[in-house]
Amino acid sequence: MRKYNRFYLPCAVLLLLAFFCAAAFCQEDMVAVDRGDFAHPQRPAAVFRHEAHNEKAGLEDCSVCHHLYEDGKLVPDESSEDQNCSDCHPLKSSKTAPGLRKAFHTLCISCHKKEKKGPLLCGECHLRHPQP
């Protein structure tokens, strides 16, 4: 009994550690837009599988969504994927930029309307029971 414990116990501990590391370091692909920037989120997070979405929609140019502005002017051909939308879009709309919720909605919905493809209604993005 003693002998077994000496062998299996450290193994179990190592295995557990490995799991935690995997969870911590190997981040999963984005499946929904993080709503942590909203003070009191009201809706379930919007489903958005970053890689799969952009592949299916044929979006190769990152700056379509991750646009970059300097001094209020759009910098063409430059992108801002190292920033969050909330870095430039505060919760409330202002004269210089639309508020965060409006920024997301305008970006996603205006393209879906233009393309006549992709969800337009609240419950099609903010799924309460998202499929895995």
Partner: peptide, 13 residues
Amino acid sequence: LAYHQIFDYRMVI
């Protein structure tokens, strides 16, 4: 029903 997404959402809305 739409808000709570009970039954088929598209149909309900």
